[in-house]
Design a protein around this nucleic acid. Structure first.
Length: 465
RNA sequence: GGCGACGUAGCCAAGUCUGGUAAGGCAAGGGUCUGCAAAACCCCCAUGCGUGGGUUCAAAUCCCACCGUCGCCUCCA
């Protein structure tokens, strides 16, 4: 079954065809680093990580570029408030975000370009847009003239005349038309500025992505991704800039993830309704957030609530529990009649069919959970490890394709392990002597310390909660 | 006001493009197992897919209208 991707540009699900055989060029808009990242940013990174992992599974060689916007009004404003250098402020947030990506098991992009390191290339592209007549200068500012771009609005499907200019933003009387946008902004006192043919200044918001995609991936790319709040104006303007220069389609597929919502609205720094990645990771492991994301379509909005987090955590636990070993004793003959190899094959098939259909991770997970049930049934029927392991290996591998690590264990000091083993062994002796009260006491006390004891026929097993 | 996305069980959610009679997870209830638990397993859990019309032998899926939630509307999530 061929891979299909929903394309925002055509508003259709389309068969995935690369520009270059076997290779995928993917550019994803990363965060503007003016504050700590929240779980909404993490969601976006996870969504495109899953996409990238699956494309690689399909045999594509993926070149993945994600940028950091480190030169921006908000970065400057924040830095001024704190009395620090804007680029140093941004650097700190970038380092923090990279650590979050590691904790969330997001594969590192092949390249993480930053605006501050691409100024020369940006100036070059702005100059080219002026040369070609798509941009004009006003007192050190450079604006893109939307009227010069005939198919402007094709991504967001809106026309300048449909929009209420200045609805949210104050009009800038220096622009020839309200829909024009800044490519270069003249420097103001107290702001970082770079020399340019138009005087000292800095890039506008959208130009950096056009430049970085072009420089690190080429004139044409396969997939351009980001949050759906970026469709307009950011991605629309990227298209305008790039295609005006190259005369070629910028990206074949435009992919957008839905917004993470909290308390009935999109999580955002300005509203202050955010949960930072740091806060989340202090309470849960990264896979819990990944599980939340995988449970729904990447393009649909996701609501962040305690209940949803809890459900994701439990579901993850169920996947992991399927990896537990056989309970059959050596001399017992297996009463298992389930063909686990066949079930594993079915799960993999459903996984692939679902993922091929616009990365339908909920469908992929559904197949995995059916395999979980089969494995558990077989274990209950007395299957030994040699029967269970191939199916468990498939489950692990499918989970791995989604970026989930089913073997991750709670990072508790191994010092405690020996003592817990000793206590549990001691308790088994008590159980053999039918000293139930004492055995139950130990189990209850361990439970309070976060250790779950599960009794078997002859001995007990334990695990961390 | 404009553009777009979404609305499926108590909760999360697939299925909608390609119409054929509702995946999966969490929770609740009943049961098996167990010294008691836990875990696991079995049963149960939407005659119903925002509302109202229409097309069709057949609609969650197509068409029209309406309601609700969210996102975006060009100095920048």
């Amino acid at each position: 079954m061929p891979l299909k991707i929903y394309n925002t540009l055509t508003r259709k699900k389309e068969e995935f065809k690369t520009l270059e055989k076997g290779k995928v060029r993917m550019y994803v808009c990363g965060p503007t680093v003016y504050d700590r990242a929240h779980v909404g940013h993490a969601m976006s990174s996870i969504v495109f990580d899953v996409m990238r992992r699956y494309l690689e599974y399909c045999g594509f060689q993926v070149r993945h570029v994600m940028n950091y916007t480190d030169v921006d009004d908000k970065v400057i404003r924040r830095a001024n408030e704190l009395g620090v250098d804007p680029l140093e402020l941004a650097e700190g947030y970038i380092e923090e975000y990279e650590q979050h990506l590691k904790d969330l098991r997001v594969l590192p992009a092949d390249k993480n370009p930053r605006v501050s390191k691409e100024i020369e290339n940006i100036i070059e592209m702005v100059a080219a847009l002026i040369d070609k007549g798509f941009a004009y200068t006003v007192e050190g500012d450079v604006y893109f003239s939307v009227a010069k771009d005939k198919d402007y609005g094709k991504l967001s499907r809106r026309k300048p005349e449909d929009m209420q200019a200045g609805f949210r933003v104050e009009l800038n009387e220096r622009k020839q038309a309200p829909e024009d946008f800044a490519l270069w902004k003249a420097g103001k006192p107290g702001e970082p500025a770079w020399d340019s043919p138009w005087g000292p200044g800095r890039p506008g918001w959208h130009i950096e992505c056009s430049v970085m995609a072009k420089r690190h991936l080429g004139d044409e790319i396969d997939i351009h991704g980001g949050g759906n709040d970026l469709i307009f104006p950011h991605h629309e303007n990227e298209i305008a800039q790039t295609e005006s220069i190259t005369g070629k389609p910028f990206a074949t597929y435009w992919a957008h993830n839905g917004m993470l919502q909290i308390g009935g609205e999109a999580m955002s720094k300005s509203v202050g309704n955010m949960v930072t990645v740091e806060e989340f990771l202090a309470e849960h492991e990264g896979d819990v957030l990944r599980m939340m994301v995988l449970n729904g379509s990447y393009s649909a909005p996701l609501t962040f609530t305690g209940e949803v987090v809890d459900q994701a955590e439990k579901a993850l636990g169920r996947l992991r529990a399927a990896l537990r070993p056989s309970r059959a004793s050596q001399d017992e003959t297996s009463g298992n009649t389930i063909d686990l190899l066949e079930r594993a094959q079915v799960a993999r098939q459903q996984f692939e069919n679902s993922m091929d259909d616009d990365f339908n991770s909920p469908g992929a997970l559904a197949g995995m959970f059916e395999l979980v049930r089969s494995i558990n049934q077989a274990r209950d029927a007395g299957a030994d490890d040699s029967e269970l392991q191939p199916a468990q290996a498939t489950l692990k591998s499918l989970a791995g394709l989604l970026g989930l690590d089913l073997e991750a264990t709670a990072q508790v000091s191994s010092d405690a392990t020996d003592f817990i083993n000793m206590l549990v062994a001691l308790r088994d002796e008590l159980r053999n002597e039918n000293l139930w009260q004492l055995a139950d006491l130990i189990r209850d006390q361990l439970s309070e310390k976060g250790v779950v004891v599960e009794d078997g026929q002859s001995s007990s097993t334990w695990r961390f909660k």
